[in-house]
Design a protein around this nucleic acid. Structure first.
Length: 817
RNA sequence: GCGGGGGUGUCGGAGUGGUCAAACGAGCAGGACUUAAGAUCCUGUAGCUUAGUGCUUGCGCAGGUUCGAAUCCUGUCCCCCGCACCA
């Protein structure tokens, strides 16, 4: 039989939409907020990989909805950003046109997937209605001192023609251009002081109960909290705080190294050394970030000396290419004997090495034939004044205490996390609502003047197009009314996605960023779904924003999402990530036309647990198609009758199992249970049994389930029906045992048939107390051949070979003739 | 270097102390139906043995704990992912 999947899909998608059955309002019902990371709309549209992501969420939404929750399941578009601008330039159209078209296409495709979004809440970050609130938040950040402008060495992507945040530099390359090395430039830029929240961002990772270990670990790593000691070294009469995790090695300091990017570097350099230092800096600037990492440690003497606070030793200060300017104070104390990096530097420049920790088992420096290396293990201190002889772990505490007492240092915590560089020198982003006035300096645009709209008419060429739009740039200073210039940088696209989940709760609010009460009802997100590639980008930013908005008094919770599910990646048939350039992209339209979208939806979760990467397989989907066809065929012939207890037992057991599996995203196992249940459905059964089966099917194959539900004579939408509740009393163990016993028996009989040929009559002998187990009705149904069963005590039994003697508990005897 | 995850049949993958290792799917082989193909259905798919219900091998490798281990512990090898000169 052929099936018109397309017609069924269209029919139900239309009905769902017309009746607005997935639209929700705040109510007394218990809410459940399910959210997938919203997509960046591109002209190439969705492929099956995206579909996989949404299907994972949709299944969960449908399941929760049927379980009586008021489910908020919205969709929107992260539609500002560089790719749209670049693509638009390439195609010669305006980014807005490009974006609108892409979104339209996305919506159409998503609707064809049968996703149960509340489309009335759609948001697009490229609309002034949305980005107005990005600007509003920016102003609030500025007001609280969290948004600031600073000149600093920044990451510059020559392909994007803009600066990037640290989070957007991967392996020294641009996150959008894997082949493009990031350059370091020294520019004045806007930053968000995310480091103010470093401690909370780190410490509350423990609250993120249902986040995967690796995402949590990645965030911990990225935030990089480390405990140590700040020690004050004196240079030219000025106190320089130095952060170290090894205060126990303070007596081993033989030189200092200041970062080549340190803003105060030149203050230290003596006249004599100036030329040499400048030559060195020039050399560093000409190398890209990635090359620098591969470079050997290099440096030159600055001419300055520092005083070691514990022994007043005079130590030379060098400038080096391996010291990071904005970690700690941008200068390190170097202990070559006990730090490999310092050791290499000392070797190269013939700087002294002073051992201050005696290795426990041997003196590594005296071993012959061994390549000298710094010793970073444990041991007792030597050459360390009054601390000599103390175990180094103990010495860390004692020396820190000693320094604190004398105000020469203190306990300190450092983070790797840097402030978030948010300005971008590009057009298609949220304009930064700031004005530069010669008299007043930096002046924020007043709230009432928001949004600062992106001008539509711009010329794309070299540099930031906004700079060339005179109407936009030239403004009056909001403060003094004189001529002033508008900030032409726009915000990082990640700003837009840092709070969108809040806007869904109240997407059309014109007066406020959102209504507090509405957000209170819906938030936090009960289930967030998205890829783990955002671990150190979006997933940190949205936590930061949540905390900031909480501190503004707008939210009363700390974390935006306590449950995060990372779906795996869908690969092409060749095993590689689906991408246009590889040519292994599978399109939902094509799959839908060939197999029906429900088939694809089912297949995507049949292969493996959805958190794993999977490969698309045209052959594999046939298995799902077969199953769906069987279901449709079955429903076209099944007769309504009373349900038998065996079926009911299985049904209730499966309800229990599937419910559990769906709750835990074990969709693959749920599908198996669904198949198991289907296998035992008899030719005659009750409407209730059939209805329950369709309910269990509906999160996977919503269109077909609705269609069959209607054919069954039910009037309401299956999508809004109540999820079946298992009646444990109806689950009878005996049926399962029967199944097992009979399967075994049949397998044994078949085995013998294979060994001996020419037999066609079957006699089976069983123990009287196992009569129940070998239910003759079930046996005949399963086997399809005539079987004669005798109990061993049956006097009239036919048993020419006296087989009944061999019967043991659980092992019937078999005789073939 | 630091951190996270993982090694199970021909393949994708279930199973995390026992009562069944390999559910379910895919592939392959044989059979039924059919003029044929497809679809569908049945059977098989580590080895040996056998009128079945038996034995052996087996969950990266090597040990250990246990009455009992794919599952727990120790060591070891390999793979994937993230970060990386963070002092």
């Amino acid at each position: 039989m052929d099936y018109d999947f397309k017609a069924i899909e269209k029919k139900w998608q239309k009905r769902w939409e017309e009746k607005k059955i997935f639209e929700v309002k705040e109510s007394k019902k218990k809410k459940f907020y399910i959210l997938e990371m919203f997509p960046y709309p591109s002209a190439s549209g969705l492929h099956m990989g995206h579909a996989f992501n949404y299907v994972v969420g949709d299944r969960y939404a449908r399941f929760k909805r049927m379980n009586g929750f008021n489910v908020l399941y919205p969709m929107g578009y992260d539609s500002l950003g560089l790719p749209a601008e670049n693509a638009a330039i390439k195609a010669g159209i305006h980014p807005r046109e490009y974006t609108e078209k892409s979104i339209e296409n996305f919506i159409r495709q998503q609707k064809e997937l049968g996703l149960s979004y509340d489309w009335s809440r759609i948001i697009k970050t490229s609309t002034p209605d949305y980005y107005k609130w990005d600007q509003w938040i920016f102003l609030k950040m500025y007001e609280k001192g969290l948004a600031y402008r600073k000149k600093a060495p920044v990451n510059w992507c020559p392909k994007c023609n803009t600066v990037l945040a640290n989070e957007q530099v991967h392996n020294g390359k641009c996150w959008r251009h894997e082949d493009t090395k990031i350059e370091t430039r020294y520019l004045e830029q806007w930053f968000f002081r995310i480091t103010d929240y470093a401690e909370e961002l780190n410490d509350k990772i423990g609250d993120l109960k249902n986040w995967t270990e690796d995402v949590k670990a990645m965030q911990k790593n990225w935030i990089g909290k480390s405990y140590g000691t700040e020690i004050y070294f004196e240079i030219n009469g000025k106190k320089w705080p130095i952060f170290t995790t090894r205060p126990d090695t303070i007596f081993g300091v033989t030189f200092m190294v200041i970062s080549a990017q340190h803003p105060e570097l030149m203050d230290l350099v003596t006249k004599k050394q100036k030329k040499e230092v400048e030559r060195f800096l020039k050399k560093i600037k000409s190398t890209s970030k990635k090359d620098m990492e591969e470079l050997e440690k290099e440096g030159v003497f600055t001419g300055a000396y520092a005083i070691n606070p514990v022994n007043k030793e005079k130590i030379p200060v060098w400038v080096g290419n391996f010291v990071i300017a904005d970690y700690g104070s941008g200068m390190v104390m170097a202990v070559p004997a006990h730090d490999q990096r310092d050791f290499e530097f000392a070797e190269k420049y013939k700087l002294p090495v002073k051992i201050v920790i005696e290795p426990i088992n041997y003196d590594i420096y005296e071993r012959k034939g061994q390549i000298p290396r710094a010793y970073s293990g444990e041991g007792n201190l030597v050459n360390s004044g009054k601390f000599s002889g103390v175990n180094n772990e103990k010495a860390k505490k004692e020396i820190t205490k000693y320094l604190s007492k004398r105000k020469l240092g203190k306990k300190a915590v450092q983070y790797k996390l840097r402030d978030w560089l948010v300005s971008r020198q590009r057009y298609w982003g949220t304009p930064i609502p700031m004005v530069y006035c010669d008299k007043c300096g930096i002046v924020p645009v007043p709230e009432k003047d928001l949004p600062v709209k992106l001008p539509e008419k711009v010329k794309f060429g070299k540099g930031n197009p906004l700079e060339t739009v005179k109407d936009f740039v030239n403004v009056k200073c909001p403060n003094c009314g004189r001529k002033a210039k508008r900030e032409t940088d726009t915000m990082d696209t990640f700003v837009n996605s840092s709070w969108y989940f809040l806007r869904y709760c109240d997407p059309k609010n014109k007066k406020k960023i959102f209504d507090k009460e509405k957000v209170k009802y819906w938030m936090p997100i009960d289930q967030y779904i998205g890829g783990k590639e955002h671990a150190c980008m979006h997933l940190i930013y949205f936590r930061f924003y949540t905390k900031f908005l909480r501190d503004l008094g707008l939210l009363d919770f700390d974390e935006p999402a306590l449950n995060l599910f990372n779906q795996g990646m869908l690969h092409g048939e060749d095993g590689y990530v689906m991408s246009k350039s590889r040519g292994n992209v599978v399109l939902p339209e094509e799959v839908s036309a060939k197999y029906g979208i429900d088939t694809a939806r089912l297949f995507l979760v049949s292969m493996a647990s959805p958190d794993k990467d999977i490969d698309w397989s045209d052959k594999g989907i046939q298995g799902s198609l077969r199953f769906i066809k069987k279901i449709i065929d079955y429903f076209s012939r099944v007769k309504i009758d009373k349900a038998d207890v065996r079926t009911e037992s299985k049904l209730n057991k499966v309800i229990l199992e599937i419910t559990e599996y769906l709750n835990n995203f074990k969709y693959n196992l749920a599908v198996i249970k669904l198949r198991e249940l289907f296998e035992v459905l008899p030719e005659k059964t009750s409407k209730e049994v059939l209805g329950d089966f369709l309910k269990l099917l509906s999160p996977f194959c919503p269109h077909i389930a609705e269609e069959l539900w209607e054919k069954l004579g039910c009037k309401n939408f299956l999508s809004l029906e109540k999820w079946p509740k298992a009646d444990k009393k109806k689950i009878k163990k005996i049926f399962e045992k029967q199944e097992q016993a009979i399967d075994k028996l049949i397998s044994d009989i078949n085995h013998i048939f294979k060994l001996v040929s020419g037999k066609n009559k079957i006699y089976v002998y069983i123990l009287p107390n196992e009569k129940e187990l070998y239910d003759i009705g079930l046996l005949n149904k399963k086997f399809g051949k005539q079987i004669n069963i005798f109990t061993v005590n049956d006097k009239s039994k036919y048993d020419p070979s006296n087989m009944s003697k061999k019967v043991k508990p659980g092992r019937p005897a078999i005789y073939l003739e």
